[in-house]
Design a protein around this nucleic acid. Sequence first.
DNA 1: CTTGAAAAGAACTGCCT
DNA 2: AGGCAGTTCTTTTCAAG
Lengths: 152, 152
Amino acid sequence: MTLDETDRAILRALAQNADQSTSRLGQKLGLSQPATWRRIKRLQEAGVIAGRRLMLDSASLGFGVTVFLGVKLATKGRVSLEDFERAIGAIPEVQTVEHVLGLYDYRVRVIARDLADFERVLRRRIMTLPGVGDVEANVLLSEERLSGPLEQ
Amino acid sequence: MTLDETDRAILRALAQNADQSTSRLGQKLGLSQPATWRRIKRLQEAGVIAGRRLMLDSASLGFGVTVFLGVKLATKGRVSLEDFERAIGAIPEVQTVEHVLGLYDYRVRVIARDLADFERVLRRRIMTLPGVGDVEANVLLSEERLSGPLEQ
DNA sequence: CTTGAAAAGAACTGCCT
DNA sequence: AGGCAGTTCTTTTCAAG
């Protein structure tokens, strides 16, 4: 799909604030409300805008610890990949499972109430999964999300 | 803040679909439209709902490659941390910068048009940053985001 | 908590340039 | 592609039980 400068300006504005009305957005860009709305709808139908996701504050819900795991599988048959994905996806504390190429096979984002709670999840639920080999852990200190080149 | 079962049901529903109206959501939960609206507003004011974020499809915008970097700094003074964060945050291809505790100091999510483009970013922009030591890379194959325990 | 109503605003449609 | 006008839906506030 081809994006002109106006489309990029719309994506840039919506990336900063996804909760603004089409009329307000149009005013900023010197566009009418229906024109703005039609462009957004076109971007949605083209799949460029995949949707809007709710951002939950894990800390205010009592989950103070976020840990990134690098997981290497011991046995990597096709079956074991799917078994592992199904099993780790069933753990409530697991937020994202990323299948990756490199030193590790999977990157997993886990949240827990505190470090003691995380140790429980790691020992009782993750280390016992089928096919798990080496596991590396990184505790999140701070995180910054940037606009990226997508809207530029 | 204290959440009852209805609050959790609202979070669960909105996590699945952030674009549904308060009246439709209320119907599912057996709640009136104003009651649903008041609960959502209360969750927003309490900071539990941090906002809504636009999801952009990087592939449809020509960015077919996502790479996770683990970065170890060579020198870790307070100044060098801030210098590094400022410098890597200024690279357009960098989407998230996470300061972590463990084998690496930072986890960085980078997108690029293809692997050749990623190599350019890695060699020209990232490896040349101040204080960068070891760098480990994992190429994303597939990704799954789960609802997690936040809404349960 | 509920229902009902009313006002404001946002989204959507059709027509025209 | 864009604007204008009108319709429909949602959000928001209010009154009352």
